[in-house]
Design a protein around this nucleic acid. Structure first.
Length: 343
DNA sequence: CTAGGGTTAG
């Protein structure tokens, strides 16, 4: 769709002229960038930059837009053009550019920017800047450098937070040093920095990749022990690992844990669990979970239904077969009614 | 909502 550039609010409409300024322009640019329409954002910028003199936020918003679009080249072009217009980059500008480089594996280029920003009066490396670089070191599998940056941050008076620890942990995991990753995790606990879904997911992913079920179990036990509620991604990872390694009993345990906490697992978690349980002959347990999902007011996927249906047929459990068919029909009907009410 | 940390292997 072609971009329609409306003329700026004219003097004949003073109310609009008063309420639209650089802050509104920035919000507009952000809205376009957030939808991946950064080219249009840039066009808007060029169209209005004379009417509403841009501030640092304007430039940084566009830099961020290019970064999120994965377009490091356009980002560089825009950046240098902005500098020619008199833009003075701040910590945020540097951070965004560094992150764009890091995500492209250009860690050394990002480090050059660190040197450059240190020479400037108006900015210092911030928590986000260090975290970005630690992450960047991890991308190029340089865990040693990641650690150095982490220590350097503390010496520079910037206290590493949960995100910085997670970035360091991720760097160790990428470098296949799971042991050091676990040490970081313990450090976080010792310092009273709570672990979050990113922390758990980082380590679990690492152990999964090298096929270390013991490691998975260690992290999982830690998670359950502290009463943490995993988010969808982590739940799915655990469910798959358990069920695909002939341990649907552990998957069932996870299921019960989540329900015990009042959490409603994702529908696909049930797919994996039902399949895993049925394949190990635990059809009644699969049926129980299927029922529980319906009792929570959710409709299992067609896939979960088909799997369970198939096993009941095979076992000639015609009563149960009929029961789940009815349950499925009832919830689908209910959903339909909800849709209609919403419409 | 102007910035950082997780997903993916062959």
């Amino acid at each position: 769709m072609p971009l329609l550039l409306a003329p700026p609010p004219s003097a004949a409409r003073p109310l609009l002229a008063l309420t639209f300024g650089v802050a509104e322009l920035n919000a507009l640019l952000r809205a376009f960038c957030a939808r991946g329409r950064v080219a249009e954002a840039r066009a808007l910028f060029h169209r209005y930059c004379d009417t509403y003199p841009p501030d640092a936020r304007t430039f940084n918003t566009l830099l961020l837009g290019f970064k999120e679009a994965g377009n490091a080249q356009a980002l560089d072009l825009f950046y240098h053009d902005a500098v020619l217009r008199g833009f003075v980059p701040d910590s945020v500008s540097y951070c965004v550019r560094m992150d764009a480089y890091c995500k492209k594996g250009r860690f050394l280029d990002a480090l050059d920017l660190l040197d450059e920003m240190r020479k400037r009066e108006n900015c210092r490396p911030t928590l986000q800047v260090f975290t970005t670089l630690i992450y960047g070191a991890g991308i190029v599998r340089n865990a040693t450098r990641a650690r150095q940056l982490f220590d350097e941050m503390g010496q520079g008076g910037v206290t590493p937070d949960r995100g910085a620890h997670n970035a360091l942990m991720g760097a160790y995991v990428r470098a296949r040093d799971l042991q050091s990753g676990m040490t970081v995790m313990s450090e976080m606990e010792r310092k009273g920095i709570g672990l979050d879904d990113v922390s758990y997911n980082t380590m679990l992913c690492g152990f999964q990749r090298i096929g270390d079920l013991e490691g998975i179990w260690k992290v999982y036990s830690k998670m359950v022990g502290s009463g943490f509620m995993p988010r969808t991604r982590t739940t799915m990872l655990l469910m798959k690992v358990f069920c695909e390694n002939a341990r649907p009993d552990l998957g069932l345990e996870l299921w019960d844990y989540l329900l015990g906490k009042g959490c409603v697992p994702h529908r696909h978690a049930l797919d994996v669990l039902v399949t895993g349980l049925c394949c190990r002959g635990m059809v009644l347990e699969a049926y129980r979970c299927f029922r529980e999902m319906i009792e929570m007011g959710m409709t299992p996927t067609e896939r979960a239904f088909r799997v369970l249906e198939g096993f009941f047929k095979r076992k000639r459990e015609f009563e149960k077969l009929e029961e789940i068919r009815q349950m499925m029909k009832a919830t689908q009907l209910e959903e339909h009614q909800c849709d209609e009410e919403a419409a």
